[in-house]
Design a protein around this nucleic acid. Structure first.
Lengths: 223, 223
DNA sequence: GTCTATAGGCGGATAGAC
DNA sequence: GTCTATCCGCCTATAGAC
């Protein structure tokens, strides 16, 4: 049954019972193969159907273990969901908006900004897993506010910060409010992804992505 | 049970069984008091908990009718949800981004744009019903793609069009691509609402709304 | 640790009286 | 049209064997 309690006891609930281990290293340390399979199966099911519409039976089947095994690794459905989303927030999707290399400052600002915008759109659009992830984070943000906050902290903030660093360090751009400009830049791109891809706007309200990117870059440069 | 069929037979399923009546007039014509109560109760429950986590028992209780009465007015759970969301899309929330009066063209563009931005933020932020509505629309956009498209068509498009009309008719703004600029304008504001309010970013990544609005308006004006 | 089997309850949907 | 009562399946979670 859906407890509807708003997960008041969420902190630290979820991770497998094993000791906290190192504070989140590479690909999560000391997790058994079964636990990993359960997490993978859970990711598949929860990202496809959302929290309430996913059953532990289907998770167990997707992970190719028995349901009892799932419950031996995770306290309950909420615990599994929390562990799984936190894993995605801190791991695989954390670097989705992250540049491997900061652009060289002497380059053309137009080229740099266009590249940044396209990178955000590429990762946002071409990874269906990330689209499902955003859909679930938003859809479950009422029942799981902590997960929504973790998403904002780790993922949105990452892109803001990075863009901000470029804005403030660029000698050619003279922005009055780099922080707010970064929000506008990222926000209009993410909103574009939400409307076109998640809400299927591509089919009813088409818009070429290059038009959006070019217009956005022009707005920022001519400030 | 969640049929998981992706509602393949969704078209036209939902509206009360009574004849189609007039094609969607004012506040929905010829709907019995019970049907209205069921819709209201359904809105309350579905907007609070999403589709899968809402039970027909709770809807019936919220509407103060028996569950059988619910099923006498609507084919099934999907039908009720469809009817209810379509009602919200076409009715109450349709005009949420709509201006009552188009701004006078001789006014200061800065004042006009600032007013438009604030109106969008006000309606988006101050109506918790609309926040829940967006959360549900996005969260259920996988299972109910038609409803997501209806949302885009009726609500997003409305704001784009209106802004576009102002952009193209203004004698003072000379925008290269008014349509793309309208998307950026609305998109960055809606994304701000999503992150700050729906994803609870206000508590972890604060940002004064006036800074965003001022920066956004400046970007558009100085183009 | 992992499984099968099952408890116990709530879910969507309907039968049938009025 | 509206109700009460009920069917039956699936759900979360656990007991107990191995």
């Amino acid at each position: 049954m859906e407890t509807d309690t708003g997960q008041t006891t969420q902190p630290a609930a979820g991770q497998p019972v094993e000791p906290p281990a190192q504070p989140l290293a590479n690909d999560s340390p000391s997790i058994s193969a079964k636990a990993k399979a359960i997490l993978e199966g859970g990711i598949q099911e929860f990202l496809s159907h959302g929290y309430a519409a996913t059953s532990m039976d289907k998770v167990a089947k997707a992970a190719k273990v028995s349901k009892a095994t799932v419950y031996s690794h995770f306290q309950d459905k909420e615990g599994l969901f929390n562990a799984l989303i936190q894993r995605l927030v801190a791991g695989r999707f954390r670097s989705i908006f992250q540049d491997s290399d900061l652009p060289a400052m002497q380059d053309d600002p137009r080229a740099i900004l266009t590249g940044l915008a396209n990178r955000i759109l590429d990762t946002g659009i071409e990874d269906p897993r990330f689209l499902s992830f955003m859909r679930v984070i938003i859809g479950e943000s009422g029942r799981f506010p902590q997960l929504a906050k973790a998403f904002v902290t780790h993922i949105e903030q990452t892109s803001f910060r990075q863009l901000c660093r470029y804005f403030t360090s660029s000698t050619q751009l003279k922005l009055k409010d780099p922080e707010a400009t970064a929000r506008i830049f990222v926000g209009s791109l993410v909103h574009f992804v939400i409307v076109q891809e998640i809400l299927h706007g591509r089919e009813v309200l088409p818009m070429e992505r290059d038009r959006l990117v070019n217009t956005l870059v022009n707005l920022v440069i001519q400030e």
